[in-house]
């Protein structure tokens, strides 16, 4: 296994992941949903209710990118591509960025900074309470995402704190399940993917066993 990993690490994929262009490329990819939303906005593609659609799209992208960030480590283990790890922080920060956009459009455009109405929503409506909970967690994680903060908190405490990302993911999924009307399946697809990613971390495959120290972070 270790030998296979070494070989893989020298393959074209590993070289691409290690390239100095890889991070800028992921950064640009992370901006694509924003660009798409702006394009829809100016071309009228957000439909008859552009505010509601902007809230919906930004929320969906926050959840999608959060799941992608959570998939990085399992994917690294499964493929043996150690080079994947260095993109995890950026993808996580993009998830936070879209969550921030989601909350900003809701507070600033949908509610037009009516803080009383927003506060009432947060305390009275469970799906907004849960969604805000996810956002608070993501904010804390984004704020402590720098190397300096890792150093200041100490590795062990930092890791413990950043496990809360699963809680944020779960809250995001629950938020989505709770806000739709009737029995709709798309929110459950996101929840199932999250559960799958969590299950992967706690499955003890022989390979994972060997790699376990970093696997559970």
């Amino acid at each position: 296994m270790a030998a296979a990993q070494k070989n893989l690490a020298k393959g074209p994929v590993a070289r691409a992941l290690a390239s100095r262009w890889a991070k800028p490329a992921v950064f640009v990819l992370g901006l694509v949903p924003l660009g798409w939303m702006v394009w829809l906005g100016v071309s009228g593609g957000l439909g008859a209710e552009p505010v509601a659609e902007a809230v919906r799209q930004s929320g969906l992208w926050a959840l999608r990118l959060l799941l992608v960030a959570l998939a990085v480590t399992p994917l690294r283990i499964l493929t043996g591509q150690a080079g994947l790890a260095r993109f995890r922080r950026m993808i996580g920060l993009f998830a936070f960025f879209y969550a921030l956009l989601h909350v900003s459009v809701y507070v600033g455009v949908d509610q037009f900074f009516d803080w009383a109405a927003v506060w009432k929503d947060i305390v009275k409506r469970p799906y907004i309470t849960v969604g805000m909970g996810a956002f608070v967690i993501l904010t804390a994680l984004a704020a402590t995402s720098t190397n300096g903060m890792v150093r200041r908190l100490g590795g062990r405490r930092w890791k413990a704190l950043h496990k809360a990302v699963f809680l944020a993911g779960a809250a995001g999924c629950v938020h989505y399940v709770m806000l739709v009307k009737g029995w709709q399946y798309p929110p459950f697809v996101y929840a199932a993917i999250l559960l799958g990613l969590v299950a992967l971390r706690y499955t003890k495959s022989p390979a994972a066993g060997r790699l376990s120290p970093s696997y559970r972070t």
Binding site: A48, A52, K124, P126, Y127
Partner: peptide
């Protein structure tokens, strides 16, 4: 009378910006 998951106090007229 609020819907249990959102307020019914305001609405946005489709095509308008503010509630």
């Amino acid at each position: 009378v609020d819907h249990p998951r959102w307020s019914q106090a305001t609405e946005r007229r489709v095509g308008e910006f503010s509630r």
